[in-house]
Amino acid sequence: MNAPDHLHFSESHEWVDATAPGAAAVGISDHAQEELTDVVYLELPAVGRVLAKGEPFAVIESVKAANDIYAPVSGVVVEVNSALAESPEAINEDPYGAGWIVKITLSDPAELDALMTGQAYREHLS
């Protein structure tokens, strides 16, 4: 199970990359994609949507089940990964890269401190 150290992780298995240029990228963890199995459909939020930490903002569907994705931090959606509409499997193949879901500008960067580091997340799962 892969959980890079430069990312922040939520208990509900989303990650935030605050080091990305411009806005912070958000996706789901390698562990989450493995649990979901083959991702076949995504419902993405509208650009401009204001997210409160903990709010469900997208739906991810595998053959097995439908799951909500929760905002790991508060902010505004400035970009969505529209390539996922055609190739949702990118979430399984590259959850920390091509499988990013939205980019958001953080309204309260201090919220990052409440998330887990890669190492803490790995320990959380073990």
């Binding site: 199995t37 083959d38 595998s62 097995k64 399984n92």
Partner: peptide
């Protein structure tokens, strides 16, 4: 189990 390598590939 629900799956081994993945539902679609199986």
């Amino acid at each position: 189990p629900i799956q081994y390598a993945g539902i679609v590939s199986e």
